[in-house]
Design a protein around this nucleic acid. Structure first.
Length: 965
RNA sequence: GCCGACGUGGCGAAACUGGCAGACGCACUGGGUUUAGGACCCAGCACUCGCAAGAGCAUGUCGGUUCGAAUCCGACCGUCGGCACCA
């Protein structure tokens, strides 16, 4: 009786060992066959081992790659381990093991599981992200980013997970919580390494267009990148300033540029004083400073602007004031007499000493403008000025060298204070009735002089700082804010002075961190305006729709010369007239450093003398030091910082004292290029040879989860696009086709998790039913992309089927049905190509139910078709037929379209669209013949009796339908 | 709120470009085989009426297009996933 049920334990291990020994699934680098690169997301070797969720993509990839191989493609289906990162480290800490030890253990276990499933990987190409031979190249690629200016260090507010004690990237914050542990993230001001993914926003968007990816995945990436087209518009502040402008050597107040500036400033309502400084051709310090001081009275609304020697004078004037003024703007200023072109005659009549402390005390702001084409002021002089005042110069291109043009708008812009906003609706500019700054906006600090309710404003800013992002968005419907009393801005369209507020509904990190509020045409502004009684002015006609806010396009009203123009037209025009067109993205740069031990060390060295110096290529990899203590510190410093012997190094450039960068890379680093490594895993001269990259990439089909859409998948595309621009890879996009899969839930319909206790272990199924049963049952649960709960009730059905196949192998008899086997071949081939594994399995069952006998040839075809799904049992049955070669090295059957067709077909006869008879007829029967047959059917006769046929619908080999009256 | 997907027996699900709704499997019911159980084999299985042939009614709800709708269109209800004050 043991013929009836096959013993999976006996056959599965036996064949697994043989396949591995004979390298049945090995890819060949120099094959003449067409290549096929099938990839699954390499797993994270966790302490719990692989779970049911892993099975889905692995099986899909396995089945698909086996068929491609049997169809004659040189197929690469590799495997590796994504083993750096928090879970591995946390697991290690918990169990008192070193991460490298626990990782090795977990990998061994996962490997055992994979092999027990009979997955046909090319094990010769196995990679591991924590292997120094691998992460040498992760570090090397990072350095290419650094050298291209796409990796930078900056201080900013970043997401911080208090439980994992590390900074996080935007993409790792899901719903305001840490992607790994679910803890609510905090904001923390920290110095971090960033990768400039925003530089690739447009390319990431562009590249999506030509990819064979599901629409849903593309849309999600598009939304994440979040492109908006609009305009940047500047709103000048309405504070009335007094400008004192000091001209330069050999100049006079009536030069065109001074008259122009006076006119422009007065138009904005400011007072302007331009004293004539004595003896401009032979100036001396006492006379000039005296004239400057005596020109007018100085108070907190005074801004002094000096050109060239006037700038020198301005500094000396400020030194002598007894109370502070608002600011000082230096155009082409200097603090020594070493000119680039020629000496000047005043150099002995001025003292080259400056009291920087006094100047800073007496001003709220200092701006230095340096003309990049200056003919007089050298870079050395510019640097000296910057160092004296401790302020960085703004580099500008003036109209004529050394700010000598008839109009100098760069100077004017520096003199006037303004708020720049980003808007997608410049057409609603006439309706902008107030402005809002993010509480973190830097301008708030510069304006302190003019804010009458400074205390209240400072309190609000403090309150905002305390809130997490989650809290900030939770109070979405109850917006708060504080007016900056005493500060007004000018709407450039209406010329009206409008109030300026700070409110936390405006985000510092998007656009310019400031908005123009148009309450009539923006829901948020509307809400805010209603709450605080701000004016609401409608400027787009709503064509009968009376409800505000009206956010749609229409025709402009109350908009001066733009009235009567449609929104889209006005939008383009006004963007140019009042500002400049601008594209904004929601995507932020990738926070790339982690304050944890178990990751790739960032291969940079900090030298006091040379600054940041990359570790030379021949010193890579920078290996993780072997240490006892690797727990996170929580201070924002990596545990590596405490290891003096590792941190202290010689600078590669100057040989002086230097320190290693102690942050590590995020978990996503190693997986951002791993598919490239599979093509050439042993290469130690480059991360992969061009020749092999050219042969294998791009990946043809990539199986993986939806959860990686805006994480791994986005990062991987970014790295690949960059490497392509650097001419280091040959394919622009890494993954030509993406096939996502649904999640397998626990039997309770909840996400499988250890804490819920609903985890189904594949090991148990394998030992009880065998790998082949598991391999056929899992896809049979439902469509590949559907989320389905695990339910092992049906598993016996699959087991019964395999038992039946086993028994068939003992008793198969002659018998011929070429039509059926051709039909099956067509169906299975089609279903696998379209990842419809569930219906393929149903087709196998149906076929066996309907074919109690078949010829030996058909039986062999059946086995080959089944082999990708149930590799062990089919291999055993194949060998029972006395074949020496593996079934998995056979050629995939081709079907004959002619034989698929049957001779007989069942046609339906309808009367008024309702089925009244079914007829078994010859294939290809014509309308006249089928009509005759149909009319003679008794049931059809019944429904046609006494009626007139007004129309006949005939679908060949399908139906005939009589429309009667 | 915005974007996307989906809604079919007791259950998991099929149904190609509109053409026999429920393939396949589980569970269930009846029968065969068996000392018995399991296993296996045969038959039945949306619902209502009927011994049957057959008829009616059925794919979240309501309406529309069509000879014919699970499939296309409109409105609504519900579930899931993503984004979430992005100006």
């Amino acid at each position: 009786m043991d013929m009836e049920i096959y013993d999976h334990k006996k056959i599965e291990e036996k064949w697994q060992k043989q396949w591995e020994k004979n390298k049945v699934f090995q890819a060949v680098n120099d094959s003449k066959e067409p290549k096929q690169y099938v990839l699954i997301e390499f797993p994270y070797p966790s302490g719990e081992g692989l779970h049911m969720g892993h099975l889905r993509p692995f099986l899909a990839g396995d089945i698909y790659s086996r068929v491609k191989r049997m169809q004659g493609s040189n197929t690469l289906f590799p495997i590796g381990w994504d083993a750096f990162g928090l879970p591995a480290e946390n697991f290690a800490i918990k169990n008192g093991l070193h991460p490298s030890v626990s990782t090795a253990k977990n990998i061994a276990n996962a490997k055992r599981q994979l092999k027990s499933w009979g997955v046909g990987f090319d094990w010769d190409r196995e990679i591991n992200t924590t292997d120094p031979k691998y992460y040498k190249w992760t570090q090397w690629i990072f350095l290419q980013f650094y050298k291209a200016g796409l990796a930078y260090e900056a201080t900013g507010l970043i997401n911080w997970c208090p439980k994992d004690k590390t900074g996080l990237a935007n993409e790792e914050v899901i719903d305001g919580k840490c992607e790994r542990c679910g803890t609510v993230v905090e904001k923390k001001e920290m110095k971090q390494w960033y990768l400039k993914i925003t530089a690739y926003a447009e390319k990431l968007l562009e590249g999506l267009k030509n990819l064979n990816w599901p629409e849903q995945v593309k849309v999600q990436q598009e939304n994440w990148i979040g492109k908006s087209e609009g305009a940047e518009i500047e709103f000048p502040l309405a504070t009335k300033n007094k400008y004192v402008i000091l001209h330069g050597f050999t100049s006079r107040p009536d030069r065109p540029r001074f008259l122009w500036m006076k006119r422009e400033l007065e138009r904005l309502g400011h007072a302007v004083v331009i004293p004539a400084l004595p003896n401009p051709d032979e100036p001396n310090e006492n006379e000039w400073v005296g004239a400057g001081l005596g020109a007018t009275s100085y108070d907190e609304n005074t801004i002094i602007c000096g050109f060239s020697l006037g700038a020198v004078t301005a500094m000396k004037v400020v030194e002598k004031l007894d109370k502070p003024i608002k600011g000082i703007v230096l155009a082409g200023g200097f603090v020594d007499r070493n000119f680039k072109d020629k000496p000047r005659n005043f150099d002995k009549r001025f003292e080259w000493k400056f009291d920087a402390k006094k100047i800073k005390q007496n001003t709220k702001f200092i701006k230095i403008l340096h003309d990049v084409n200056d003919t007089a002021i050298s870079n050395e002089q510019k640097k000296n000025l910057e160092e004296t005042l401790g302020v960085q110069a703004q580099l500008v291109a003036s109209e004529k060298p050394h700010f000598g043009g008839d109009a100098e708008p760069t100077v004017l812009r520096a003199l006037t204070e303004s708020i720049t906003v980003f808007t997608t609706r410049p057409d609603t500019l006439f309706g902008a009735t107030y402005m809002v700054l993010a509480p973190e906006h830097p301008l708030v600090r510069n304006l302190e002089f003019g804010i009458q309710n400074l205390e209240e404003v400072k309190n609000y800013i403090e309150e905002t700082k305390k809130k997490t992002d989650l809290q900030r968005s939770a109070v979405e419907k109850n917006k708060t804010g504080v007016e900056l009393k005493g500060i007004k801005a000018i709407n450039p369209a209406t010329k009206e002075a409008i109030p300026v507020w700070i409110a936390d509904y405006v985000l510092a990190s998007y656009g310019t961190g400031a908005i123009m509020a148009v309450p009539a045409h923006d829901e948020r502004d509307f809400e805010f305006a209603k709450k605080y009684g701000l004016p609401i002015i409608k400027v787009v006609n709503d064509e009968g729709d009376r409800t505000l806010p009206y956010e749609r396009d229409g025709v402009l009203i109350e908009s001066g010369k733009y009235s009567g123009i449609s929104s889209p037209t006005a939008r383009a025009q006004m963007a140019k007239d009042f500002g400049k067109p601008k594209v904004q993205y929601k995507l932020r740069d990738w926070v790339f450093s982690r304050q944890r031990y178990w990751g790739e060390p960032i291969p940079l060295i900090h030298c006091d003398k040379c600054g940041i110096v990359p570790v030379p290529d021949d010193e890579l990899p920078v290996k993780l030091p072997e240490v006892e203590k690797y727990e996170p510190t929580g201070t924002g410093q990596s545990p590596l910082a405490a290891i003096d012997s590792w941190v202290n190094v010689k600078c590669p450039k100057c040989d002086g004292k230097a320190k290693r960068e102690t942050n590590t890379m995020p978990q996503w680093a190693g997986s951002s290029w791993y598919w490239l490594r599979y093509t050439d895993p042993q290469n130690n001269k480059e991360f992969a040879s061009k020749k092999l990259l050219k042969h294998w990439t791009p990946v043809d089909v990539y199986f993986g989860g939806m959860e990686h859409t805006t994480l791994h998948l986005l990062y991987a595309r970014f790295w690949n696009l960059f490497l392509y621009d650097e001419k280091l890879v040959t394919a622009q996009e890494p993954f030509a086709r993406r096939v996502p899969h649904g999640i397998i839930l626990g039997p309770d319909g909840e996400k499988m998790s250890k804490s819920r206790g609903n985890v189904v272990n594949p090991d148990d199924i394998v030992s009880q039913y065998g790998a082949d049963t598991l391999r056929m049952f899992e896809p049979f649960l439902g469509p590949h992309d559907a989320t389905v709960p695990w339910n092992d009730q049906g598993i016996v059905g699959v087991k019964r089927f395999l038992d039946k196949v086993w028994r068939y192998g003992q008793v198969f008899e002659p018998g011929e049905n070429n039509s059926q086997i051709n039909k099956l071949t067509k169906k299975i081939t089609y279903d696998i190509e379209n990842f419809k594994f569930n219906t393929a399995i149903a087709a196998f069952m149906e076929f066996l139910n309907e074919n109690k006998q078949m010829s030996k040839a058909n039986w062999e075809t059946f086995l080959i078709l089944l082999a990708p799904f149930a590799p062990h049992i089919t291999e055993d049955l194949w060998r029972q037929l006395k074949y020496k070669d593996s079934i998995h090295s056979q050629t995939w059957p081709k079907y004959d379209e002619k034989s698929v067709k049957q001779e007989k077909v069942t046609m339906i006869v309808q009367v008024l669209g309702r089925v009244r008879a079914t007829l078994e007829v010859e294939v290809g029967i014509d309308q006249i013949a089928i009509k005759e047959l149909a009319m003679s059917d008794s049931n059809v006769k019944k429904y046609l009796a006494g009626k007139k046929i007004v129309k006949e619908i005939f679908v060949k080999d399908k139906l005939i339908n009589f429309v009667v009256k």
